[in-house]
Amino acid sequence: MFATINDLWARWPAHPDIPEETAEAFLSDASDLITDLFEIPSSPDEALGRTLRRITVAMTRRALTRFGEDGLESVTDSQGPFSTSMKFSNPDGNLYVTKQEREAIENALAPSAGDFVVTQSSGW
């Protein structure tokens, strides 16, 4: 796994009451999804490790927001005869990588892609 339960709770201090086993399962699933989508080295360097941890936590948090009010997209309340409806942004708790996260992982995987390289050649 690219992130631990402590990483998740540190980045989400007001998290709803979620069983640790559930959160750990989602962290594991998010890590697996990242591994399925990208060629992650078996021993990522420090910069890549930080990126993977951050994105794993973000994916997990999005999936777990259905357990609390963080995931509410809209709430409608009527007064009489008492009606309330709530719409969640991710009601099924799906794990996904955003475009920004995809770019961050790709950049972390190829840190020297934009570097300037000087080469010397000799004669014709």
Rank of each mutant, 00 (worst) to 15 (best):
4 T>N: 08
5 I>K: 13
6 N>F: 08
8 L>V: 07
8 L>H: 04
9 W>Q: 02
10 A>D: 15
12 W>C: 00
12 W>L: 00
13 P>H: 06
13 P>E: 10
13 P>W: 04
14 A>D: 13
15 H>M: 00
17 D>A: 02
17 D>T: 00
18 I>G: 00
19 P>E: 02
21 E>A: 04
22 T>H: 03
22 T>M: 06
23 A>H: 05
24 E>P: 07
24 E>Y: 05
28 S>N: 11
31 S>L: 07
32 D>M: 12
35 T>G: 09
35 T>M: 11
36 D>V: 12
39 E>C: 08
43 S>N: 15
45 D>W: 15
47 A>R: 15
47 A>Y: 06
49 G>D: 15
52 L>K: 15
56 T>L: 06
59 M>L: 05
61 R>H: 05
61 R>G: 01
63 A>S: 07
64 L>S: 00
65 T>K: 06
66 R>T: 04
70 D>E: 12
74 S>I: 08
76 T>M: 02
77 D>N: 04
78 S>I: 14
83 S>D: 04
84 T>Q: 03
84 T>Y: 01
85 S>K: 03
85 S>N: 05
86 M>W: 05
88 F>L: 07
88 F>S: 02
89 S>D: 11
91 P>S: 04
91 P>G: 01
92 D>Q: 14
92 D>V: 08
94 N>S: 14
95 L>M: 10
96 Y>T: 08
98 T>R: 13
98 T>W: 08
98 T>I: 12
99 K>A: 09
101 E>C: 06
101 E>S: 10
104 A>N: 04
104 A>E: 13
105 I>Q: 03
105 I>F: 05
105 I>D: 05
105 I>H: 03
106 E>C: 04
109 L>K: 06
111 P>V: 09
118 V>E: 13
118 V>N: 13
119 T>Y: 14
124 W>E: 10
